[in-house]
């Protein structure tokens, strides 16, 4: 190349500040625009996309962004929820309210064979349970509807192994993730061309951090399941963690007596597998504050967790999100 020989002078920093008439965007505005761009690209280029909706905060943000992307039109694709039947009751209620409020097309799928076999979080260890009730159900739903793109709310900051994940993640016809067969992503140019049977997972929130998510929820006043906010809830202490007694299907171990404690959840999933944290944070700013302060102790406890990263890699290859 022949780079244009330009003046190399270093401008004083002050002169490069934006003039009042040209405000630069805030980080949330840039993240929002990037996500909307990604969501629109998928709607325009893929034949039959679907948005995975897990009811959690990341799904809430992703859905909010999608509504903005297509306003005033309705979403040009359906939502898909994989219901393991062990979600918190409150999640299902919130899910149905959201669908009604926004006029969405929601598909709900369960692994009926798994249910018939009696697979529960208590009969099988959590990774087998998740594989069967979540991953398998997801794969079969994607195949049976012939979806060629599925939006997921995963973020790169969630854990180290995700740091290098692409925005468009290519999956083989068996939904496998071949780490050697991923496409480079430059600029905002995403390559969504697929061969028959192939599909992509798309992660519009790749560049968001957990803090960004909460700040955006605060800015946009996005409704969330109340489980994210502290309230007195019936819990038992099990293996050093607080587990909520969401219904009478939770087999109590000898000595376990449900007690009311002020708790909230940082992530949401199947209630017997999701630990609550003791907290009094009942509003978004309070949660943000608690979260930011809490990091110090969390991190000093465990700087690196190699096993975790490796196991995530494995899950992904099996078709887990």
């Amino acid at each position: 190349m022949t780079p244009a020989p330009q003046a190399l002078a270093t401008l004083p920093i002050a002169q490069r500040r934006p003039s009042p008439s040209s405000p630069s965007l805030t980080h949330l505005q840039r993240l929002e625009a990037e996500s909307i761009h990604i969501i629109r690209e998928v709607a325009a280029e893929l034949r039959n996309p679907v948005m995975l909706y897990s009811v959690g905060k990341d799904s809430a943000v992703m859905l909010h962004l999608a509504m903005k992307a297509f306003y005033p039109s309705q979403l040009p694709f359906p939502l898909l929820h994989i219901d393991t039947t062990w979600k918190f009751k409150e999640m299902i209620r919130f899910r149905d309210e959201t669908v009604a409020r926004l006029g969405l097309n929601l598909l709900v799928r369960r692994n009926e064979a798994g249910l018939a076999e009696g697979i529960t979080p208590f009969t099988h260890n959590s990774s087998i349970y998740t594989q069967i009730m979540k991953t398998e159900a997801l794969k079969s739903a994607l195949s049976s509807f012939g979806f060629d793109a599925a939006f997921g709310g995963a973020r790169r900051d969630e854990e180290k192994s995700r740091a290098k994940e692409r925005v468009f993640s290519l999956r083989s016809d068996s939904h496998g993730w071949d780490p050697k067969n991923q496409r480079p992503e430059l600029w905002n140019l995403y390559n969504g061309r697929l061969k028959a049977g192939e599909s992509i997972r798309v992660f519009p929130l790749s560049n968001w951090t957990e803090t960004d998510i909460w700040q955006y929820i605060m800015r946009e006043r996005i409704p969330l399941v109340s489980l994210y906010f502290a309230a007195k809830r019936p819990v038992v202490e099990r293996d050093g963690q607080w587990i909520m007694v969401d219904d009478d299907r939770l087999p109590l171990r000898p000595g376990e007596v449900p007690e009311m404690r002020s708790v909230r959840f940082r992530t949401l999933g199947c209630y017997p597998l999701t630990a609550a944290t003791e907290s009094t944070a009942a509003t978004v700013p309070e949660v943000l504050q608690e979260m930011l302060v809490a990091r110090t102790s969390e991190r000093s406890g465990r700087l690196i967790d190699h096993d975790e990263a490796a196991s995530m890699e494995k899950k992904k290859r099996e078709g887990y999100f």
């Binding site: 949330l28 840039r30 504050q289």
Partner: peptide, 17 residues
């Protein structure tokens, strides 16, 4: 109790990238 924190958080919303 958390008013100052709230101000702080709102200020953080307007960061650049």
């Amino acid at each position: 109790k958390s008013e100052t924190v709230s101000d702080y958080l709102h200020a953080h919303e307007r960061k650049s990238l």
